[in-house]
Structure formats: structure tokens, C-alpha cells
């Protein structure tokens, strides 16, 4: 074990940096959210909760709800695509699994902006998808794919899918194979083994991946901006506008605070669910 002094010396630079440039900025946002916008776009230092009552206005509340809907759809589709993919990787020969996983996660670490831009190129009215569909005669005239909610959901699924595959794979890899065999030996059909054994045991992995996608999606800025074409606003765009075009920093700060609160509640709920699951398992194993 390190001495107290040495430990502190290791931690100090990082704690100072994150304190000054993460904790303090968040605290400033929180404080600013209780002030008013000044006449020239500055801040009037008068305490008020007006920004929060304004955020509850239907105009803004509906944007929150729409963001949650889009994030929810992205989460759902990401899980539906990721689960069978993760399953296929977990079934592959052991020495190939690592390579398959690297291939999945590689795009996740690359440029987000460019990955989203690639879909702008594909979804365009003159893009490859419309051209292809027209060529095979499925459609007579180009579909409007870009600047729709569909495009935003697609972009979010595309960008976060690798992470969900990774978390579900991790859960599947931890799964005790003998449980599946036991279920099969006792005559359960495949779907039943999946629903009663595999799915419940991998649910924490699914939940972890799902919460992650939801949280990153609901506060996203780039995807709705580029694939929604500034026509469809999500919370991220709304906050962006308060800072750059409306010049109403306190209101932007209030929206950001609400967003962070929503995210924290979700992460907290997930942590509690995971702990509870672990507790129940321990209790079961402790039983004589």
C-alpha cells in the first residue's frame, strides 16, 4: 500500500484538473441557470426560477419528450441488432472472437463527424440508397430520407451499435455454459432455454448497453444537427442554440441541468437494479 502522502501526490494533478475543468464548469452552469439573460446577451445576476418554469413550457417539454422518444427507439433497435450479433460472436471459435470484437469496436473509436457524414451521403435524395431503390424499380421518385426522425434514429444506432454489441457479448461470455446444457438436457426447446435461462442472465449486460445508448443519444448534438437538418430539434440542439444564436446562456444552462438530472436518474436506477440483482444472486447462493 502507498503512504497517504504518495497516494495524494498521484491523485492531486488529476483531481485538480477535473475539479477545475469539470466540476467547477458544471457548478457554474447550475448557478447560471438561476439567473436571467441580460439585455445584451450577458447575464443579469438576479435569482430566479424562471428558466425552469420556462423549460416546463410545452414548447420545450415537447422537445425533451421527442428527444426521449428518438433515444428510446435508437436504444431498442441497437439492442435488437446487437443481441444476435453478440450471440454469433460468442458462438464463434474462441481464438477468432477477439478479432471479431476488434472489428466491431473499431468504428466506435473513429471520427464521429465523418461516420455521420457518410450517412448524409447515403441518404441524400440523389444518394446511393435512393438511386439503388429506383434502379431496381421499387420506387418511382426519390424518398425523403435525410432530415427525418428516421435518419436520426438510424445515425444513433449506427454510431452506438458497437458498444452495445460489446456489453452484450461480455454478458454472454460470462454465461455458464453448463446452465444451457442443463436446460437442453431437461428437454426445453431452444427458444425456451433462451427466454428462461440465457436472457435473464444476460439482462444486466443488455441494460448497461441500453442505458449507455439512451444517455448518449438523448443529449446528442451532431447526429440531429446533420441528419435532422436543423429541422428536427433535440435537447442538444436546443442548448446549442441558446448559447450561439439566442444568446440566452442562463436558459441554456437550465436545459443542460435538466438533461443531466434525467441522465443521472437513469444511471442511478440502472446501478440500483444491477446491485439488487447481484444481491439476490448472493442470497440464493448463500442458501444451504
Amino acid at each position: 500500500m502507498l503512504t497517504r502522502g504518495a497516494r495524494l501526490a498521484y491523485l492531486a494533478p488529476g483531481l485538480l484538473w477535473l475539479g477545475a475543468l469539470l466540476v467547477v464548469p458544471c457548478a457554474i452552469l447550475l448557478v447560471n441557470s438561476f439567473f436571467l439573460r441580460g439585455v445584451y446577451g450577458g447575464i443579469d445576476y438576479i435569482w430566479t426560477v424562471e428558466n425552469y418554469t420556462r423549460a416546463a413550457d410545452w414548447l420545450y417539454l415537447s422537445i425533451f419528450l421527442k428527444s426521449a422518444k428518438i433515444a428510446g427507439l435508437a436504444t431498442l433497435f441497437a439492442i435488437l441488432i446487437a443481441y444476435p450479433a453478440a450471440w454469433a460472436i460468442a458462438q464463434a471459435p474462441r481464438r477468432r472472437q477477439a478479432a471479431l470484437l476488434v472489428l466491431v469496436i473499431l468504428p466506435f473509436w473513429s471520427n464521429y463527424l465523418i461516420r455521420t457524414y457518410a450517412w448524409m451521403v447515403l441518404l441524400n435524395r440523389e444518394g446511393l440508397i435512393n438511386e439503388g431503390l429506383e434502379a431496381v424499380g421499387l420506387i418511382g421518385e426519390p424518398l425523403t430520407l435525410l432530415n427525418t426522425e428516421f435518419a436520426i434514429v438510424l445515425g444513433l444506432v449506427y454510431n452506438y451499435l458497437p458498444f452495445v454489441i460489446l456489453t452484450i457479448y461480455a454478458a454472454l461470455a460470462r454465461l455458464d455454459r453448463s446452465l444451457i446444457e442443463a436446460s437442453q438436457d431437461l428437454g426445453a426447446p431452444g427458444w425456451r432455454t433462451f427466454l428462461r435461462v440465457v436472457l435473464p442472465l444476460t439482462l444486466p449486460g443488455v441494460a448497461a448497453g441500453g442505458v449507455f445508448v439512451f444517455v448518449l443519444s438523448i443529449g446528442n448534438f451532431i447526429t440531429p444537427d446533420l441528419l435532422g437538418g436543423q429541422k428536427i430539434q433535440m435537447v442538444g440542439n436546443l442548448i446549442y442554440d441558446q448559447f450561439l444564436s439566442a444568446r440566452d446562456w442562463p436558459f441554456g444552462a437550465a436545459l443542460a441541468t435538466v438533461l443531466i438530472m434525467v441522465m443521472m436518474m437513469l444511471l442511478f436506477a440502472q446501478a440500483i437494479a444491477v446491485n439488487r440483482g447481484a444481491g439476490r444472486r448472493e442470497a440464493r447462493e448463500a442458501r444451504p
Binding site: 469539470l22 466540476v23 464548469p25 458544471c26 457554474i28 449507455f212 448534438f221 442538444g236 448559447f243
Partner: peptide, 21 residues
């Protein structure tokens, strides 16, 4: 939590927080 926060906080929120700072 402090070490996890920068990975999960929405970019736009960290961005406006830093600008405010």
C-alpha cells in the same frame, strides 16, 4: 463517478460548461 463522468456527460453540456468557465 468523477472518472466516469467525462465519458458519459453529453459533449454539448461539457462544452457550454467550459465556455461559461
Amino acid at each position: 463517478a468523477l472518472l466516469f463522468a467525462p465519458m458519459i456527460i453529453p459533449d454539448i453540456v461539457l462544452a457550454i460548461g467550459l465556455l461559461s468557465f
